[in-house]
Design a protein around this nucleic acid. Structure first.
Lengths: 112, 112
DNA sequence: TCTTTATGTTTAGAAAATAAACATTAACTT
DNA sequence: AAGTTAATGTTTATTTTCTAAACATAAAGA
């Protein structure tokens, strides 16, 4: 009975755009919406959608100022929960990369 | 003009199941279909689909023996191209995690 | 006032992931 | 030897997710 298990990979973070947003927010004090669009080279619609997902997960906080329209400004900030999730995700991936799976292939089939 | 760019993330490998399959094949000489199902804790349908994608990308080779049915045996092996792609992906992610994005947020908007 | 520009969000379409259903064949049962 | 069960895999249909196009809002400029 091999109890081998791959590390758990957080599906919320295992998405290119969301991960880039989180990495950016982890390295800056805060970042606004349009800045995230630029550095991730993504459309506003996509960034808006992924930011909503990250906010709903409690990984970031989103604050809007300036009202709607021309001069609105939406700024994002990573939360403690987000930082922990990001680091756990990073650790899981590092472990995954160094994984050596057990070679017990013959034990499971009814040949021989 | 900041020319900042995040590392390129190979979308074929940035999928949990495909990545686990590749990591397993990178650490073993070869692995058969049912073994991959077990260690990845995934259904046969899903593994079959992802293996096809990896094969079409040239990242793995798939050989079948025993014909169809009860005692068929499908074994997968990573290719040189697959090894390189996996390591490039790993390197890109490591760089992403250590990324420090430029803090030039104020330079882009027409306030002030 | 009308147009243009700068934010964002909603929603509709595309793409991808997942599992359910199907297919194949060998062993077992009676 | 016909019928059943069990072991692989594949195809397909559903669900989920991603992406961008369309929409909405408001300020500045003509």
């Amino acid at each position: 009975m091999s109890a081998f298990k791959f590390p758990v990979i957080n599906p919320l973070l295992h998405n290119e755009l969301r991960l880039k947003i989180m990495v950016a927010l982890d390295s800056l004090e805060s970042a606004d919406f349009m800045y995230l669009c630029r550095i991730t080279d993504s459309t506003r619609g996509n960034v808006s959608a992924q930011i909503t997902i990250l906010r709903d997960a409690g990984y970031i906080e989103v604050s809007k100022s300036g009202g709607l329209g021309r001069f609105s400004r939406t700024v994002c900030r990573i939360t403690a929960k987000g930082i922990e999730a990001l680091h756990t995700y990073e650790d899981g991936l590092r472990r995954l990369f160094s994984e050596r799976v057990p070679n017990d292939q013959e034990s499971r089939r009814d040949i021989g």
